[in-house]
Nucleic acid binder design. Structure first.
Lengths: 220, 220
DNA sequence: TGTCTTGTGAATGGATCCATAACGTGGAAA
DNA sequence: TTTCCACGTTATGGATCCATTCACAAGACA
């Protein structure tokens, strides 16, 4: 509006919607009205339509012809398979990334992990956890791979948060142990160990998540 | 215009562009002019813009702000990693799909394979090979997984064709042997064997493809 | 002669207006 | 009272028009 308006309007709308969806302000099942979004952001409906298409590609909304956009509702099997996709793809991203991470990058990753250990708040934890893992994939220069990993994180974000809110911080130490071992393996430039701890981390999270049926609204 | 115009225009434009890109008529690096496409298909520029966004999500075009759309050029590492993604994801799709394939589906898959063995033409082979593998994933009800697999096939389509044109039909029997073993494992409902043959098939294809640097235009 | 600058053209990005399809509501008839 | 049909409202889909930005080329100055 006033100052940094030279950024493309579609991108701004997409970023705003992405933030609102990932933060949980717009929950799964909610309908997204083009005009309402346009009014709120002071843009026309056209950038909103383009933004919705972008977000569809990111797995954050589904678009039904003539019926509008919604945040998709996933059942337990959906989330379980998405986690299995993560278990298979993120190690590849890590393997591609590790050789290109310099010592500064690794120090930054370790710093994020230290901050995670200090934060109990679910909202902060979720953001930092995402930053942590994405930083470990930061050296992966393959757009297709990075984009796919981002999609998987986006699609499962709401259910990850729901699980964190239910399970509480009691067993949070496990995450810190796993992250710690992963960071150590990275600093030793040991891709085999890093992959081992990463797969274990994701797999344990998946099993813990699907063990809580109350996370999934519709069906068991 | 005249008859089946009730199908959404964006979808029609996307389908037409998808066909032209996958067939090789629009090759990597080519710029795609919105107005030219719009004129050719008798539509406005707006559906073209939406179609380009959809195709971006499918990995068929890249969109640079204020600079238009292009079919992306991949280097050898890109294609290699895309194949590694396939090696990791497609077995998961197969595992999810197999329990939901009935005997009719399996018979149809076997039929496609028989037709592959009868066709030497590269164009026919590419289409049938795609049909074959996609049919084996047909029972996988997870949209995210199916879409991702489709993206990987789309993104590598051009380089697969280039490789087929270079290598000729000489070693085509290997594909038939691999497909045959895969079909047999599927008919035995043996997911372990099926995964084994599928991974081997993709991995061998990857190694054969990256051994032909002339497939990749820019750099080695 | 080489390089920087400026101008012109073309293509993309955005906004407003119109058509169409879906949903809900109200009324009428059985 | 219930059900079905028709109408009106609302939201999305599409087309045309205008603004902005990028690219290329021609010219001027060092």
């Amino acid at each position: 509006m006033s100052e940094p308006a030279h950024t493309a309007a579609s991108e701004r709308v997409a970023a705003a919607l992405r933030e609102r969806i990932l933060s949980g302000e717009i929950s799964p099942g909610s309908r997204i009205l083009q005009e309402e979004v346009a009014d709120r952001l002071g843009a026309s409906r056209l950038p909103v339509r383009e933004a919705l298409l972008m977000l569809t590609a990111e797995g954050l909304v589904t678009l039904e012809p003539n019926k509008g956009a919604r945040v998709p509702i996933l059942d337990r099997q959906d989330v379980e398979v998405l986690y299995q996709m993560r278990e298979r793809l993120e190690p590849l991203a890590l393997i591609e990334s590790l050789p290109r991470l310099d010592d500064g990058d690794l120090a930054e990753i370790a710093g994020i992990q230290r901050r995670i250990e200090q934060h109990d708040d679910v909202r902060e934890f979720l953001a930092l956890d995402r930053d942590f893992h994405m930083a470990t994939y930061g050296g992966c220069g393959i757009d297709h791979l990075s984009d796919t990993v981002t999609r998987l994180w986006n699609a499962t974000q709401h259910y990850r948060r729901a699980f964190m809110l239910i399970s509480g911080p009691g067993r949070r130490w496990i995450v810190n142990a796993e992250h710690g071992l992963l960071v150590d393996a990275l600093q030793r430039r040991d891709a085999v160990d890093a992959e081992r701890y990463l797969v274990g981390h994701i797999r344990r999270t998946r099993l813990a998540l699907v063990a809580h049926p109350e996370v999934f609204a519709g069906k068991a």
